[in-house]
Structures are given as structure tokens and as C-alpha cells.
Simulated scan of single mutants.
Amino acid sequence: MKSGQLQINGLTAILNQHFQWNKARMDCFVGILVALMGVGTQLALAFPRLGADTAALPSDATVF
């Protein structure tokens, strides 16, 4: 079994301790989490300074 699949299985096991969902729902949820983490990683690589420096903003600016 591949390392990525082992990590997904581990994440599923951890989440199963907290959520008593059926296998189909848990597999879907874990798939969504993995996809979001992948997109977040790609965004972080594409925009490395996004949100990294807020010193240029006025002191009364709202940062989201």
C-alpha cells in the first residue's frame, strides 16, 4: 500500500474516533479534506507572501 493511502487510512481512523459516520460519508469527508489540503499547499506555493506581511497596512485596517 502506498504511503499516501496509509496516511488517509490513519486520518480516517482518527476521525472515526470522533465521528460515528458510515464508511461512505467518512470516505467522502476525508477526500474533501485531502483535496483542500492539496489546494491550500498549491496556493501557498503560488502566493508565498500572501498574508505574510501586514506591516504595510494602516493600523485601522481589517485583515481577514
Rank of each mutant, 00 (worst) to 15 (best):
K2Q: 14
S3G: 01
S3N: 07
G4W: 10
G4E: 15
Q5Y: 07
Q5A: 14
L6Q: 13
Q7A: 13
N9W: 08
N9R: 09
N9L: 10
G10N: 09
G10R: 12
G10T: 03
G10H: 05
T12I: 00
A13Q: 11
I14H: 11
L15V: 02
L15H: 07
L15P: 02
N16E: 06
Q17V: 02
H18W: 15
H18A: 01
F19H: 10
F19E: 00
Q20A: 15
Q20W: 14
Q20P: 04
Q20Y: 07
Q20N: 12
W21T: 01
W21L: 15
W21E: 05
N22M: 03
R25L: 09
R25H: 06
M26T: 07
M26W: 03
D27N: 14
D27W: 08
C28V: 00
C28S: 09
C28I: 04
F29E: 06
F29M: 09
F29I: 00
G31Y: 04
G31H: 03
I32T: 05
L33R: 09
L33H: 04
L33G: 04
L33T: 06
A35Y: 15
A35P: 01
A35I: 01
L36Q: 14
L36M: 12
M37S: 10
M37F: 13
G38S: 14
V39G: 13
V39I: 14
G40R: 07
T41K: 15
T41D: 02
Q42Y: 05
L43D: 03
L43T: 03
L43I: 08
A44D: 04
A44C: 05
A44G: 10
L45G: 09
L45F: 14
A46P: 00
F47M: 07
P48G: 07
R49P: 00
R49V: 00
R49D: 06
L50V: 01
L50E: 03
G51F: 09
A52P: 02
A52V: 01
A52N: 11
D53M: 08
D53N: 15
D53Y: 12
D53L: 06
T54K: 09
T54N: 15
T54R: 06
A55I: 12
A55C: 06
A56L: 08
A56V: 05
A56M: 05
A56P: 00
A56N: 13
S59T: 01
S59C: 03
D60G: 08
A61W: 04
A61E: 09
A61Q: 08
A61D: 11
T62N: 13
T62F: 14
V63Q: 09
V63D: 00
F64N: 12
F64L: 05
F64I: 04
